[in-house]
Design a binder for these strands. Structure first.
Lengths: 332, 332
DNA sequence: TTGAAAGCGCTAACAA
DNA sequence: TTGTTAGCGCTTTCAA
């Protein structure tokens, strides 16, 4: 592949001049500039980004570290990040940690080694991993999940509020024994959505009880098992709020398998949509999040942080909406 | 951040020795090696991959260019690629072309500029874009969709056979006016699945007719519109075979909206699964593909190609299966 | 406005 | 076995 020296030779100018023409950094005699452009064409020259990056001690790569690439929530989010990144000349390396702190640590190490320009992370929960990025002064934006103990730019949704909406809606529909299937305690979204559920119950004079709460893993199977265990209680619930989309699907599968009628016998509300929710029977009531915009917002913050590392960190909170469908509307 | 010189100084050895210790390329006095390891620890040294790549004229990045990150088919495939890449020390840059040849061309240019170690591509159809990669001797593997006119490693499923299975099944169920909603002509999967459909009809003595065939865009809306236009025919179909998952969803939505009973009035079979197919009512009969394994196979081929650029190109074909569910089983 | 030359951090000849 | 040195391809002083 042609180098800048080949172009310089072909155009009969110095490499410095080629660089000036290519980067528009300084004024160049139009005649020389034209010769350079022609040589670039002739040789089909493409600047070597690796060399450029080394020289400038910077790169054009962002790492996006998410916990489950199979979850449409994250793919939509990544798309939001990517569209903004692309527009600012960055490429996105997608890293799937599978909720595994070990894998996450490996990706963080890779981001460090590659001297990535920035990292967007939805953490699997170990805070110390992120500190290495902070220490190395690599710009970081936390997305969807909060980072404990470090001050970084963060993009979240109003988890507590969304969970309150969901739980209050179930109460309004006349459900009384409302269960909650949430995620691992160490993950902020799991904790916040549980808090919203508890707060809604209390504000209506109900006392949340631990045996209607399950800590699962944000996956389909986990939702299924949690639902099964709830149904096996001596006093099983008459409704369930699941704090993410996949666990909602799992819970509904369990109810279908056991022949429990939804919503007549048990009402269901889930946090975050699933695609084709309208084709699923019964259609699912969900707290919907602006997933794509979450990604966009994070990408914008990251871009700003890279441009201005000294700027104070900010936290963006996006809104959630309750979409009422069949799974929670009790026949009168 | 610490450089190899800092480590060398700290360990009181030459940079070359540090490099030898770190890469295990040559034997080093254990005493010196220990000093180096200690210095690496003390300084929290991380090799600069950018510099290493420049020096070696190689990178550890693969680009995976797909046409729709919102399609679970591709996310599963990417996961397969990623798992293998990770195992061989490569990272994956995910590029989403949105079926747009322009965007695809931009990503190819980026892969070229970054001197990516390899590219896995599910092309949106313009062959000349890929030629730039070939000319630059960047290893390429075509996945899911064939590349016309160039000889590259390729991983496909048996599209013609799968389409035949689907169509024959609909005939067996007693459907007679079977329509086909396929993708853009320039995309090999669209053409091959259409061919399978036509072949199945012919082998049973039916003549495929053009007014039961629609060329859509592999998206949900396209499937919806194609189905609507089929229903508006003077002699509408009594069954439909859609050649990808999203168009199948769109077609079913259209049937639901128009109050057309599935499978009683119109039978439906789709190519490729959707997640939660079992929760959708009616559940969808599909030709299922080993999506994750497609990704794995492509990644393995890419790894081999990088290790041995001279090896002859190969084509891997994986099998498809018909999963019969409600949408195509006519009540007797 | 242009060219010469140094250097980003690393690895691999080559010499010792 | 170890150190010295050159150079990957680029950008940016500095001098002309």
């Amino acid at each position: 592949m042609a180098t800048i020296y080949d172009v310089a030779r072909q155009a009969q100018v110095s490499p410095a001049t080629v660089s000036r023409v290519l980067n528009g950094r300084a004024s160049v005699d139009p005649v020389l500039a034209a010769r350079v452009q022609q040589a670039v064409q002739d040789l089909n020259y493409r600047p070597n980004v690796v060399a450029r990056n080394l020289r400038l001690s910077q790169t054009s790569l962002w790492a996006v570290i998410i916990s489950d690439i199979g979850n449409p929530f994250f793919t939509s989010m990544v798309r939001g990040v990517e569209d903004v990144a692309q527009g600012s000349g960055f490429s996105v390396v997608l890293c799937n940690s599978d909720e595994d702190p070990e894998k996450e640590a490996r990706y963080v190490a890779a981001a460090l080694a590659q001297r990535m320009a920035g990292v967007v992370i939805s953490t699997s929960g170990r805070p110390n991993v992120i500190n290495r990025l902070i220490e190395a002064r690599i710009p970081v934006v936390a997305i969807d999940r909060q980072l404990r103990g470090v001050s970084v730019d963060t993009v979240l949704v109003d988890n507590v509020h969304g969970a309150e909406l969901a739980t209050t809606h179930l109460l309004d529909q006349g459900y009384r024994r409302i269960a909650c299937i949430t995620g691992p305690r160490r993950i902020s979204t799991a904790a916040q959505r549980l808090r919203g559920y508890q707060r809604a119950l209390k504000s209506r004079g109900h006392q949340p009880t631990d045996n209607l709460i399950r800590f699962a893993d944000f996956r389909e199977e986990g939702g299924y098992r949690a639902m099964a265990s709830l149904l096996d209680e001596t006093e099983p619930p008459d409704a369930v709020f699941a704090t993410n989309n996949l666990m909602t699907v799992g819970a509904v599968e369990c109810l279908v398998d056991r022949g429990v009628k939804v919503p007549a016998k048990v009402g269901v509300v889930g946090f975050d949509d699933i695609p084709w929710a309208h084709l699923v029977r019964p259609s699912l009531t969900t707290v919907s999040q602006p997933t794509y915009d979450l990604g966009r917002a994070a990408a914008v913050l990251l871009g700003e942080r890279i441009a201005n590392p000294a700027k104070p960190t900010s936290m963006v909170t996006l809104h959630t909406d309750l979409h009422i469908r069949e799974s929670s509307t009790r026949p009168a």
